[in-house]
Design a protein around this nucleic acid. Structure first.
Lengths: 343, 343
DNA sequence: TGACCTTGTAGGAACGTTAATACTGGACGT
DNA sequence: ACGTCCAGTATTAACGTTCCTACAAGGTCA
């Protein structure tokens, strides 16, 4: 296959100006050894030939690609999306490009994506692991001195990470429900399947602290994270005897699905059931009943993650000890859980 | 900066097995000239050394990077997000990686992103241009024989494109509103600023066809595409004298904002105002009043776009004449515009 | 027997860049 | 006048692959 498009190289500028390739290279990079006059001639020639440096060749010799690999589980999740965008911007600002791959929540695909990135010589990776509990391949990566920062993790992951403290966020939401008088609180959370149990732990923590019993029947796995799955899970929660009077959903899509269920079934929110979500997406505030939700600054997470990663990338020799940064989210209380003057 | 991580090259496998670099390269690529026995020895050595081919070096000689650049305007838009994900998957399936960049709806940033991609020797690009009307830089790209496929375009763009027919989609929505008896129909659309007037054209087309007058006061630019902007625009539409009885919003976020306005102001939907949106996002179906919306298969668009791009990428010599593929979307009618038995 | 293939392997150049080193010719000092 | 230094430029060797060609050893054939 021939590209058919003209490729302008340093050589072409050299031929045109009569200088050597090396002089051209130095001049274009603004090396002080090249006098201003010469540099101008060369820059002018470069411009007229429409020269663009070949990053691939540059990478081969410099051994850095100025590229970061971003592994996401599933970009349909609006939260991950915001994160991806923010990361791309933060990296672009610092002269890095973003390669991205989705693992579809599959461990093998995650490993494949990492291998592709390695083969492409990315300078570092940001990873949303499929699960907190399957990090061996990532720890191995780090052991081989590859800069990696996770965007979800436990404090003891053994790998650098910057992420929001989901346990604490869930705790705050459930604690709030308890504080507003609820005793039977349901949770819609698919953590079990994904090996991410943080939110469930926060839920249990809040219950225990308040001396409330943990009731397995109040825990429903929605088998997904979309609105319909939330609707379905809410139906299960509310159809069984001993209905909860409040429900915490692991994300806002699920919460909106739950909210929708109450609408269809003629229940008032928050009077009949209170609902709280997680992530505080745009639609949360503007839902039929504005949704109480756990909120955090995406940009804060991504900025810290990117800074840390670039810190690792620019480290000489061995990587420093891993550092996990957990960001404490806040709860935004809206009508779905508490209406001034009502219960 | 030294990477500090061991890099295994063909040379290392050669040293270990006693064969030459060339033989190792041929063996690993399964060349038939290398006998099975030799190949096994080499493969075994490669595995034990944990060899991963260096794509950068490979790209330098093969002059292809197996990388596609994707330029998005703004990944916050849930629609673009779905598109990005689908594209990444379609490309990964065919052995291509996706580099991505966001232009933030800024022409200069768009140009910068394209230059970065060129410098990185991407094999082709998929672009959401900031505007349909500013395509000169992209046409120039194509003239230089760079494979490009746009994801938004006019039929006469002069560049390959695969996209949904927004004009037709808008037409369908407005036509439906007219068919259900509405005579004063508002439109919330920020096309003016972005140079994307397709939806507005479809709106006008439907009015003209029905012999209805075009009223400038019924056209509002929301100055954004978020829920709040839709709320704001709806407020403007409904505050002026000569309120519309139906509103078409250029996307579902805006439509949900409009819907929210009706809720807050005690109007019934669709009895007092009918509302229709565009994109049929997940939240449309599950909104307080399920939202009528223009729908299309994201995957169809992306599959066609990716196929076309790879067709261009693998073309020898000059690119074929540009081809624009418009996909006709369908209208999903829900309660927000029509309730069986009501007006 | 020797010309000619075939099979397995090796050697060198190339891809476009940067880094390290080498060469020029003039200015300067003594 | 002669060595020294320096500014400006050129030469060469990398980086890790792949492609093209070379070549030795053995087999086939007349």
């Amino acid at each position: 296959m021939s590209l058919g498009r003209p490729v302008v190289r340093l050589k072409d500028i050299a031929d045109k100006t009569g200088f050597s390739v090396n002089t051209v290279s130095l001049a274009l990079r603004g090396n002080p050894r090249i006098p201003e006059e010469t540099a101008n001639v060369i820059r002018e020639a470069a411009r007229s030939l429409n020269y663009l440096p070949n990053q691939v060749a540059k990478s081969l010799v410099s051994r850095e690609t100025k590229t970061i690999g971003l592994v996401l589980t599933d970009i349909t999740n609006p939260t991950l999306t915001k994160v991806a965008q923010a990361i791309e911007m933060a990296l672009a600002e610092r002269g890095y490009s973003t390669l991205f791959a989705t693992s579809n929540n599959d461990l093998e695909e995650e490993k494949r994506a990492i291998a592709v990135f390695r083969s492409r010589q990315v300078d570092g990776m940001l990873i949303y692991p499929r699960s907190h509990r399957d990090l061996d391949h990532i720890r191995e990566l780090r052991r081989a001195n590859h800069p990696v920062v996770l965007l979800v993790a436990d404090p003891d992951a053994g790998v650098d990470a910057v992420c929001i403290d989901e346990r604490r966020g869930a705790y705050r939401a459930v604690r709030h429900l308890i504080d507003t008088g609820h005793k039977r609180i349901g949770i819609i959370d698919g953590g079990q399947r994904l090996g991410n149990l943080e939110k469930r732990e926060g839920y249990v923590m809040a219950l225990e602290e308040a001396g409330l019993p943990f009731t397995p029947a109040l825990v429903v796995d929605p088998h997904g994270h979309s609105v319909i799955r939330g609707y379905w899970a809410m139906d299960r929660l509310m159809s069984a005897p001993g209905r909860p009077t409040a429900v915490f959903a692991a994300n806002d899509s699920l919460a909106i699905g739950a909210l929708r269920w109450t609408q269809k079934n003629g229940l008032r929110v928050p009077e009949d059931v209170a609902i709280a979500g997680f992530d505080n997406i745009e639609f949360a505030e503007h839902a039929a009943t504005p949704l109480t939700s756990v909120n955090y600054e995406t940009q804060l997470v991504t900025d810290l993650a990117v800074s840390r990663l670039l810190e690792l990338v620019t480290t000489d020799g061995s990587l420093p000890d891993p550092r996990v940064t957990l960001i404490d989210p806040e709860l935004i209380v809206r009508e779905s859980s508490y209406r001034p003057g009502s219960a």
